[in-house]
Amino acid sequence: MSLLHYINAFFSDGAHWHGYDGIPHRLAEHLQYSFTALGIAAAIGLPLGLITGHTGRGGNALALIATAARALPTLGLLVLMFIWLGIGETPVMIPLVALAVPPILVTTYEAVRTADPAPVDAARGMGMGPIAVLFQVELPMALPLILSGVRSATIQVVSTTAIAAYVSLGGLGRYIFDGLYQRNYEIVVGGAALIALLAVAMIGVFYLVERLVVSPGVRLRRR
Protein backbone atom coordinates (compact mmCIF):
# COMPACT_ATOMS: atom_id res chain seq x y z
CA MET A 1 0.00 0.00 0.00
CA SER A 2 2.22 2.74 -1.27
CA LEU A 3 -0.50 5.34 -0.74
CA LEU A 4 -0.66 4.65 2.99
CA HIS A 5 3.11 4.50 3.07
CA TYR A 6 3.36 8.00 1.60
CA ILE A 7 0.74 9.32 3.98
CA ASN A 8 2.48 7.76 6.93
CA ALA A 9 5.84 9.15 5.86
CA PHE A 10 4.35 12.62 5.48
CA PHE A 11 2.79 12.73 8.91
CA SER A 12 5.76 11.21 10.73
CA ASP A 13 8.23 13.70 9.28
CA GLY A 14 8.80 16.14 12.13
CA ALA A 15 9.71 18.90 9.68
CA HIS A 16 6.10 19.04 8.55
CA TRP A 17 4.85 20.02 11.97
CA HIS A 18 6.33 23.45 12.51
CA GLY A 19 7.32 26.60 10.77
CA TYR A 20 5.76 28.66 8.01
CA ASP A 21 5.24 25.61 5.84
CA GLY A 22 4.24 23.42 8.81
CA ILE A 23 0.89 21.73 9.10
CA PRO A 24 -0.45 23.95 11.94
CA HIS A 25 0.19 27.15 9.99
CA ARG A 26 -1.16 25.78 6.68
CA LEU A 27 -4.20 24.39 8.48
CA ALA A 28 -4.87 27.77 10.08
CA GLU A 29 -4.60 29.46 6.68
CA HIS A 30 -6.86 26.89 5.12
CA LEU A 31 -9.52 27.29 7.80
CA GLN A 32 -9.25 31.06 7.63
CA TYR A 33 -9.93 31.12 3.86
CA SER A 34 -12.71 28.57 4.18
CA PHE A 35 -14.55 30.20 7.02
CA THR A 36 -14.22 33.71 5.66
CA ALA A 37 -15.81 32.50 2.43
CA LEU A 38 -18.49 30.59 4.33
CA GLY A 39 -19.22 33.60 6.52
CA ILE A 40 -19.72 35.80 3.48
CA ALA A 41 -21.82 33.12 1.75
CA ALA A 42 -23.99 32.67 4.85
CA ALA A 43 -24.41 36.43 5.18
CA ILE A 44 -25.73 36.46 1.61
CA GLY A 45 -27.56 33.14 1.42
CA LEU A 46 -29.32 32.92 4.79
CA PRO A 47 -31.22 36.22 4.80
CA LEU A 48 -32.00 35.96 1.09
CA GLY A 49 -33.24 32.39 1.51
CA LEU A 50 -35.29 33.31 4.57
CA ILE A 51 -36.95 36.21 2.81
CA THR A 52 -37.67 34.41 -0.47
CA GLY A 53 -38.77 31.26 1.33
CA HIS A 54 -40.99 33.25 3.67
CA THR A 55 -42.74 35.00 0.81
CA GLY A 56 -42.62 31.91 -1.40
CA ARG A 57 -41.55 33.99 -4.38
CA GLY A 58 -38.49 33.74 -6.58
CA GLY A 59 -38.16 29.96 -6.56
CA ASN A 60 -37.58 29.86 -10.31
CA ALA A 61 -35.01 32.62 -10.12
CA LEU A 62 -33.19 30.76 -7.35
CA ALA A 63 -33.17 27.53 -9.35
CA LEU A 64 -31.66 29.47 -12.23
CA ILE A 65 -29.01 31.11 -10.04
CA ALA A 66 -28.13 27.77 -8.52
CA THR A 67 -27.71 26.13 -11.92
CA ALA A 68 -25.69 29.05 -13.28
CA ALA A 69 -23.43 29.09 -10.24
CA ARG A 70 -22.78 25.39 -10.56
CA ALA A 71 -22.04 25.76 -14.25
CA LEU A 72 -19.12 28.10 -13.48
CA PRO A 73 -15.93 26.08 -13.07
CA THR A 74 -14.48 27.08 -9.71
CA LEU A 75 -10.87 26.68 -10.79
CA GLY A 76 -11.49 28.71 -13.94
CA LEU A 77 -13.17 31.45 -11.97
CA LEU A 78 -10.21 31.49 -9.59
CA VAL A 79 -7.71 31.90 -12.42
CA LEU A 80 -9.80 34.63 -14.01
CA MET A 81 -10.09 36.53 -10.72
CA PHE A 82 -6.37 36.10 -10.11
CA ILE A 83 -5.62 37.52 -13.52
CA TRP A 84 -7.94 40.48 -13.06
CA LEU A 85 -7.29 41.24 -9.40
CA GLY A 86 -3.77 39.97 -8.76
CA ILE A 87 -2.44 38.07 -5.76
CA GLY A 88 -4.59 38.38 -2.66
CA GLU A 89 -7.48 36.89 -0.81
CA THR A 90 -10.23 38.51 -2.85
CA PRO A 91 -9.65 36.44 -6.00
CA VAL A 92 -9.89 33.33 -3.86
CA MET A 93 -12.97 34.49 -1.98
CA ILE A 94 -15.05 35.15 -5.07
CA PRO A 95 -15.08 31.59 -6.46
CA LEU A 96 -15.43 30.06 -3.00
CA VAL A 97 -18.38 32.30 -2.16
CA ALA A 98 -19.91 31.52 -5.55
CA LEU A 99 -19.53 27.86 -4.66
CA ALA A 100 -21.06 28.16 -1.19
CA VAL A 101 -24.00 30.49 -1.80
CA PRO A 102 -26.23 28.18 -3.89
CA PRO A 103 -26.52 25.30 -1.41
CA ILE A 104 -27.12 27.68 1.51
CA LEU A 105 -29.56 29.85 -0.40
CA VAL A 106 -31.53 27.03 -1.98
CA THR A 107 -31.89 24.87 1.13
CA THR A 108 -32.85 27.84 3.27
CA TYR A 109 -35.46 28.80 0.70
CA GLU A 110 -36.80 25.26 0.53
CA ALA A 111 -36.68 24.81 4.30
CA VAL A 112 -38.72 27.89 5.02
CA ARG A 113 -41.05 27.48 2.06
CA THR A 114 -41.94 23.87 2.77
CA ALA A 115 -42.26 24.39 6.52
CA ASP A 116 -45.62 23.25 7.86
CA PRO A 117 -47.88 26.33 7.65
CA ALA A 118 -50.13 25.20 10.51
CA PRO A 119 -47.78 26.08 13.41
CA VAL A 120 -47.07 29.45 11.81
CA ASP A 121 -50.79 30.13 11.52
CA ALA A 122 -51.30 29.00 15.11
CA ALA A 123 -48.46 31.23 16.32
CA ARG A 124 -49.88 34.27 14.56
CA GLY A 125 -53.33 33.47 15.86
CA MET A 126 -51.98 33.32 19.40
CA GLY A 127 -50.62 36.82 19.05
CA MET A 128 -46.96 36.25 18.19
CA GLY A 129 -45.29 39.09 16.32
CA PRO A 130 -43.63 38.52 12.92
CA ILE A 131 -40.08 38.53 14.32
CA ALA A 132 -41.04 36.07 17.05
CA VAL A 133 -42.79 33.85 14.50
CA LEU A 134 -39.66 33.77 12.34
CA PHE A 135 -37.19 33.09 15.13
CA GLN A 136 -39.30 31.03 17.53
CA VAL A 137 -41.37 28.98 15.12
CA GLU A 138 -40.20 28.98 11.50
CA LEU A 139 -36.45 28.91 12.06
CA PRO A 140 -36.34 26.15 14.71
CA MET A 141 -38.47 23.92 12.52
CA ALA A 142 -36.51 24.67 9.33
CA LEU A 143 -33.15 24.34 11.08
CA PRO A 144 -32.24 20.74 10.16
CA LEU A 145 -32.66 21.44 6.46
CA ILE A 146 -30.86 24.79 6.66
CA LEU A 147 -27.99 23.13 8.51
CA SER A 148 -27.74 20.44 5.86
CA GLY A 149 -27.32 23.18 3.26
CA VAL A 150 -24.65 24.95 5.31
CA ARG A 151 -22.89 21.63 5.88
CA SER A 152 -22.94 20.89 2.18
CA ALA A 153 -21.44 24.32 1.49
CA THR A 154 -18.84 23.84 4.22
CA ILE A 155 -17.65 20.50 2.90
CA GLN A 156 -17.39 21.80 -0.63
CA VAL A 157 -15.60 24.98 0.41
CA VAL A 158 -13.16 23.26 2.76
CA SER A 159 -12.15 20.81 0.04
CA THR A 160 -12.10 23.38 -2.75
CA THR A 161 -9.99 25.88 -0.78
CA ALA A 162 -7.09 23.64 -1.83
CA ILE A 163 -7.05 25.38 -5.20
CA ALA A 164 -6.08 28.69 -3.57
CA ALA A 165 -2.51 27.39 -3.74
CA TYR A 166 -2.87 27.17 -7.53
CA VAL A 167 -2.65 30.95 -7.63
CA SER A 168 0.17 31.26 -5.09
CA LEU A 169 -1.83 31.50 -1.87
CA GLY A 170 -1.43 29.35 1.24
CA GLY A 171 -3.60 26.72 2.83
CA LEU A 172 -3.24 22.97 2.71
CA GLY A 173 -3.37 23.00 -1.08
CA ARG A 174 0.19 24.34 -0.89
CA TYR A 175 1.44 20.79 -0.24
CA ILE A 176 -0.29 19.42 -3.30
CA PHE A 177 0.91 22.03 -5.74
CA ASP A 178 4.40 22.35 -4.27
CA GLY A 179 4.69 18.58 -4.21
CA LEU A 180 3.56 18.28 -7.82
CA TYR A 181 6.06 20.96 -8.82
CA GLN A 182 8.90 19.30 -6.89
CA ARG A 183 7.74 15.84 -7.99
CA ASN A 184 7.61 14.93 -4.29
CA TYR A 185 4.76 12.50 -4.18
CA GLU A 186 4.90 12.10 -0.42
CA ILE A 187 4.03 15.73 0.17
CA VAL A 188 1.31 15.69 -2.51
CA VAL A 189 -0.45 12.72 -1.03
CA GLY A 190 0.04 13.92 2.54
CA GLY A 191 -1.55 17.28 1.75
CA ALA A 192 -4.41 15.64 -0.11
CA ALA A 193 -5.02 13.32 2.82
CA LEU A 194 -5.06 16.27 5.20
CA ILE A 195 -7.66 18.10 3.16
CA ALA A 196 -9.82 15.00 2.80
CA LEU A 197 -9.59 14.43 6.56
CA LEU A 198 -10.53 18.03 7.25
CA ALA A 199 -13.57 17.83 4.95
CA VAL A 200 -14.71 14.57 6.52
CA ALA A 201 -14.18 16.09 9.97
CA MET A 202 -16.67 18.78 8.99
CA ILE A 203 -19.35 16.10 8.71
CA GLY A 204 -18.63 15.22 12.34
CA VAL A 205 -18.68 18.86 13.38
CA PHE A 206 -22.07 19.34 11.80
CA TYR A 207 -23.39 16.18 13.38
CA LEU A 208 -22.50 17.69 16.76
CA VAL A 209 -23.87 21.11 15.88
CA GLU A 210 -27.17 19.55 14.85
CA ARG A 211 -27.39 17.65 18.13
CA LEU A 212 -26.74 20.88 19.99
CA VAL A 213 -29.03 23.34 18.24
CA VAL A 214 -31.88 21.31 16.76
CA SER A 215 -34.71 20.44 19.12
CA PRO A 216 -35.21 16.69 19.65
CA GLY A 217 -38.84 17.24 18.70
CA VAL A 218 -37.76 18.24 15.19
CA ARG A 219 -34.65 16.06 14.92
CA LEU A 220 -36.24 12.77 15.91
CA ARG A 221 -39.60 13.07 14.20
CA ARG A 222 -37.89 12.71 10.84
CA ARG A 223 -36.70 9.22 11.59
Binding site: V120, D121, G217
Partner: peptide
Protein backbone atom coordinates in the same frame (compact mmCIF):
# COMPACT_ATOMS: atom_id res chain seq x y z
CA UNK B 1 -53.61 43.25 17.27
CA UNK B 2 -51.39 40.85 19.22
CA UNK B 3 -53.00 41.86 22.51
CA UNK B 4 -56.38 41.04 20.95
CA UNK B 5 -55.14 37.65 19.74
CA UNK B 6 -53.66 36.77 23.12
CA UNK B 7 -57.11 37.31 24.63
CA UNK B 8 -58.63 34.76 22.26
CA UNK B 9 -57.77 31.08 22.19
CA UNK B 10 -57.14 29.78 18.68
CA UNK B 11 -57.43 26.12 17.67
CA UNK B 12 -56.86 24.89 14.13
CA UNK B 13 -57.01 21.71 12.11
CA UNK B 14 -54.09 19.36 12.82
CA UNK B 15 -53.51 21.46 15.95
CA UNK B 16 -50.47 23.26 14.48
CA UNK B 17 -48.29 22.35 17.42
CA UNK B 18 -44.70 23.58 17.61
CA UNK B 19 -42.72 20.47 16.76
CA UNK B 20 -39.60 21.80 18.46
CA UNK B 21 -41.24 22.33 21.84
Amino acid sequence: VNQLRRSMGYVIQNAGLFQHR
